[in-house]
Measured scan of single mutants.
Amino acid sequence: NQASVVANQLIPINTALTLVMMRAEVVTPMGIPAVDIPRLVSMQVNRAVPLGTTLMPDMVKGYA
C-alpha cells in the first residue's frame, strides 16, 4: 500500500504548505501520494484542512 499525504496540523485556507505540516500515512481512500511531498512545499491549500485529514489533489492549488 502506498502512503498518502496527511495533515500534521490544522492548515488554514490559503496557507502555503511546509514539510512540518505534512506526514506520510497509509490511508483509505488514497490521497496525494507521499512521494509528492517535496512538490507540495510552498503550494497553497484552497480550503482549511483539519489535523489528520488526507490531502486530495483538489485541495491544493496548482497540484492537479
Rank of each mutant, 00 (worst) to 15 (best):
G31V: 02
M43P: 00
T18S: 15
M56R: 13
I13P: 12
R23T: 09
A3F: 14
M56G: 08
N46E: 14
R23Y: 06
V20A: 15
R47C: 04
P29I: 10
V60A: 02
D36I: 06
I37A: 06
L10P: 14
M43Q: 09
R39K: 14
V49A: 05
A24D: 07
L55G: 00
M22G: 00
N46T: 08
M56K: 06
A24L: 04
L51V: 13
A7N: 02
A48S: 08
V27F: 02
V49S: 02
T54F: 02
V5P: 01
V6F: 02
K61D: 13
T18I: 04
P57W: 08
I37E: 02
L17K: 00
T18R: 05
P38I: 14
P50D: 12
I13M: 13
I37R: 09
A24G: 15
P38L: 10
L40G: 00
M59A: 11
L17S: 00
V60S: 01
P12Y: 07
D58W: 07
V20P: 06
V49G: 01
P38G: 10
T15V: 11
M59V: 15
N14Q: 10
P29M: 06
A34S: 13
A7R: 02
M22H: 00
A64V: 12
A34W: 05
V20I: 10
V49F: 02
N14D: 07
A16Q: 04
M43H: 09
G31C: 02
T15C: 03
M21Y: 07
R23F: 04
G31S: 02
M30E: 12
Q44F: 12
V20T: 06
L55N: 00
A48Q: 07
I32M: 05
M56D: 05
L55F: 06
V45T: 14
M22W: 02
P29W: 04
N1D: 13
V27P: 01
V5H: 01
E25G: 07
I13E: 09
V60M: 08
A24H: 05
V20C: 03
P33T: 08
A7L: 04
A16S: 11
P57E: 10
E25W: 06
R47P: 03
A24V: 12
A16Y: 08
T15F: 07
A3K: 10
I13R: 09
R23K: 12
L19T: 07
M56H: 14
T28D: 11
V49I: 15
L40P: 01
G62T: 11
I11D: 00
T53H: 12
T15E: 14
V35Q: 14
A24Y: 06
L51C: 03
V41A: 06
N1H: 09
V60D: 01
N46P: 03
Y63K: 02
Y63M: 05
A16D: 13
V26L: 13
V26D: 14
P29H: 08
N46Q: 10
L40N: 00
V27G: 03
V27L: 07
M43A: 15
T18C: 03
L55T: 01
V20Q: 09
Q9R: 09
A34M: 15
L10D: 15
V41G: 03
V27T: 09
V5A: 11
S4K: 02
S42W: 11
V27Y: 02
T53I: 09
Q9K: 09
Q2M: 12
L19I: 07
E25F: 07
N1A: 13
V6N: 02
R23D: 06
M56L: 15
L40V: 06
T54D: 00
S4F: 03
R47M: 13
M22L: 15
R47Q: 11
V45W: 01
V5I: 15
N46V: 13
L10V: 12
M21R: 03
N14H: 09
P57R: 07
V45A: 06
K61N: 14
N8P: 02
V5R: 00
P38R: 05
I13T: 11
